[in-house]
């Protein structure tokens, strides 16, 4: 790095500062142990978690918090499985009591086939949660109008999908993602749709503040190696965004000087 290179400013969400711009989910891993190793390899400082009933018939089952320490990582409880604002508020009140933190991920889904967010209900739930004092990071469609509405409702981060949850299709609508980024005054994080490292880099090159992913790591053949790949992809994409890419040209342009040829 040259002396002239500007230091990147860190990611700040609801007053919390993060060195890593990668947030990873904790679902779909073979074991919590594998999950913990992937987390370490990813360099992420924040993880999403779900809130579920304790299995009362076997209280000795392994617990996530025994493998990933909530004092070391920021836990971001989600509302996966909630279909109304009331469900989301109920779930996150429990999460707040379990963990003692207010930073949460809101997702209100609709049809299980595409898992697209129900945006009308998401906006209503966001308003309810903000009123209750939560800091709400919102999973949303890639609709710039709704993204703005969520921000106006007090969302502390806007998290548009890149492609359907768990699909690994990569960012399907870079135009909308860029429009959301241009308009937003809070961090924009692409949540869902990343399949491999280049997808994460594309998101960061668009100017996203971070990427949230789960399946791309958990369902890779080697999740720990993929976690490491994602770490580097997010850094590379961010650096490329800050560096400013060269303009695309229609024709070739030689890299070696034409003058002085023998």
């Amino acid at each position: 790095m040259t002396a002239q290179t500007q230091q990147d400013s860190p990611l700040v969400i609801a007053g919390r500062t993060f060195k890593s711009r990668l947030i990873i989910g904790t679902g779909k891993y073979e074991t919590y142990e594998q999950n913990a190793r992937a987390l370490e390899a990813s360099g992420a400082e924040m993880i999403t978690v779900a809130v579920r009933r304790v299995n009362l018939s076997d209280p000795s089952q392994p617990r996530l918090v025994d493998f990933i320490d909530p004092r070391q990582y920021t836990f971001l409880p989600n509302t996966a499985g909630c279909f109304t604002g009331e469900d989301a508020v109920r779930t996150l009140r429990l999460a707040r009591e379990a963990g003692g933190w207010d930073l949460v991920k809101l997702e209100v889904l609709s049809d299980p086939k595409h898992l697209y967010p129900d945006m009308a209900e998401t906006l209503r739930a966001c308003e309810m949660l903000v009123k209750e004092g939560f800091e709400v990071m919102v999973y949303c469609s890639d609709d710039p109008v709704y993204a703005k509405r969520l921000e106006e409702a007090g969302a502390c981060a806007i998290m548009p999908l890149g492609a359907p949850i768990g699909s690994g299709l990569g960012i399907q609508n870079p135009v909308n993602i860029r429009l959301i980024i241009e308009e937003a005054k809070v961090p924009v994080i692409v949540d869902a749709g990343v399949g491999t490292a280049s997808d994460a880099a594309v998101g960061m090159e668009l100017g996203c503040d971070g990427i949230l992913m789960n399946t791309a790591i958990a369902e890779a053949k080697d999740p720990i190696r993929m976690a490491s790949a994602m770490k580097h992809a997010v850094i590379a994409g961010r650096e490329a965004y800050l560096a400013g890419r060269m303009p695309k040209k229609r024709y070739a342009d030689p890299s070696s000087p034409l003058a002085g040829l023998i």
Binding site: G27, Y29, V51, V54, L94, A95
Partner: peptide, 10 residues
Amino acid sequence: LEIVHFVGGG
């Protein structure tokens, strides 16, 4: 009574 805890999720 509902007794819950954190589990893996995305």
